[in-house]
Amino acid sequence: MDVLSEMLSVSSVRGSAGARITAAGEWGVEWTGDRDAVVYAVTAGIAYLIVDGDTPRMLMPGDVVVLAQGSGHTLASAPSAPVHSCDNAAAVDARLRGAALALGDGGARTHILGASYSYDFAAPVPVFAVLPPVLHLSAPQLDASASDIVTILGRELAAPGPATDLLLDRLVDVLLVEVMRAWLSTDTELSASWWGVLRDPLLYSAVSKIHEEPGRPWTTESLAREVSTSKQTLMRRFAVFTGTTPGKYMTDWRMNLAARRLRDTDDSLDTIATDLGYASEFAFSRAFRRERQIPPGRYRSRSRDVGSRSRTRPSSTAEPAPSIAPTSDT
């Protein structure tokens, strides 16, 4: 059972490739914040990323940076460079033509690829909420496969062909997974969250069991037996790496699955309750309301309404960085 894949699926994370940015001389461009996450990969030259409340960061060739909460930000040749607002029309035109968004004057020295990640804001799993607001990985921290993905992205953006949008979006999804893998393997001071299950082999095994059979009447004792450890050890590892208990994780995951099915299917409450191990529709509804502070039927209506507005919002406002925004949502 691939835990990370399930987490991303439950959150409906979808990558959308944007455009190439080329820059020369003295330059600076500013984007206001929005809800979607943004990723930049520097393929040549240097740039500075400036985010309110954060020290300006120098981005070198091979670096990848993710703005997990879609914070307002500036890209510039230097922290003191003059800054202008993004030319949305030029950005969209460059995206359509497969051309680069040119910044500054003279021969391009800096090359940057940009993309964004949308996700269902009604989804209960906070994939991006528990990432650092600015996740900066240098080239040495990334696996060679991440560099290969960035190279292919650049080539496809420069020479679009049939099914380019589909290919680019899939590549951006793969890049996110590579970034997350690198972050998990290099950051030794992660705060306790559900990311912790990906860092501890024992927890990963335990959580995989829960994900494989969410409707099984698990107890901490039975789960510990399945992974050949003691109840006390399992509880201690959950507390250290996730900040929660096995029982709470089980309940949260069942509610995550229930929320996805309420949002994406027409399955009856009774069917969902049975599949997730609840004795009755009433027991499920009571548990869901206790955890989400809203009855499941009302959650279904509200989440679908939010999802519909998210899918139909215009591209000019859908992305936090207009210069890398796709022309349509995927």
Rank of each mutant, 00 (worst) to 15 (best):
L171N: 10
I210D: 02
L8N: 00
R298Y: 08
L202E: 04
V39R: 06
S193M: 05
R311G: 06
D267G: 05
A144P: 03
W195D: 00
V42R: 03
G107R: 09
G107F: 01
D165A: 10
I46V: 11
L75A: 04
L184N: 15
H211R: 15
L167H: 10
H111I: 12
S285W: 05
S80R: 02
A115S: 08
T245K: 05
W183S: 11
W183T: 10
A23M: 06
A192F: 02
A224F: 05
V65F: 01
T242N: 04
P124V: 11
R35P: 05
F121M: 12
V42S: 06
R236F: 02
E26S: 10
T151L: 09
D266T: 08
Q141A: 12
E30M: 10
G33Q: 07
Q141P: 03
D54K: 09
T327Q: 13
L198M: 13
D148R: 13
R309C: 08
A100Q: 03
A144F: 03
M58S: 09
L171W: 01
A259D: 15
S85F: 08
G307N: 07
Y278A: 08
S71I: 06
P160C: 07
I46S: 12
P124Y: 05
D143S: 13
V179M: 14
A19I: 10
P217K: 10
R216S: 15
D36H: 15
I210L: 13
M7P: 01
F284K: 02
E6N: 12
S185P: 00
A224S: 08
Q232P: 00
K248C: 12
S205M: 11
I112S: 04
V177N: 03
G70A: 06
R97S: 13
L103T: 06
G215M: 05
L153R: 00
S205V: 01
E226Y: 06
V51E: 01
L223P: 04
K209M: 12
P133E: 12
T229Y: 01
V3C: 11
G28T: 05
E213L: 15
L135W: 03
P133V: 14
A123E: 01
S228V: 09
D120K: 09
L49F: 03
L96D: 14
D2T: 14
V83W: 00
Q232C: 06
A102M: 09
H84A: 13
G70L: 01
P56V: 09
V83Y: 03
T32A: 14
L276V: 15
A182G: 07
G72K: 04
Q69D: 14
V130L: 08
R313E: 14
T274F: 04
P124F: 02
V240I: 15
D169Y: 02
G45C: 03
A224P: 01
L49D: 03
R216M: 13
I272T: 03
D87I: 06
S285T: 14
S228Q: 13
Y117D: 02
T233F: 00
D264F: 01
Q69P: 06
Y204E: 14
L135D: 02
R95C: 05
Y119G: 02
I210Q: 03
G154K: 07
L257P: 01
I112F: 04
D266A: 14
G18W: 04
L167S: 06
L166Y: 12
D120G: 01
R170V: 11
A23S: 13
P320D: 05
A100P: 04
V42H: 04
V127T: 09
G215S: 00
A318C: 12
S11R: 10
W194T: 13
I50E: 11
S303F: 00
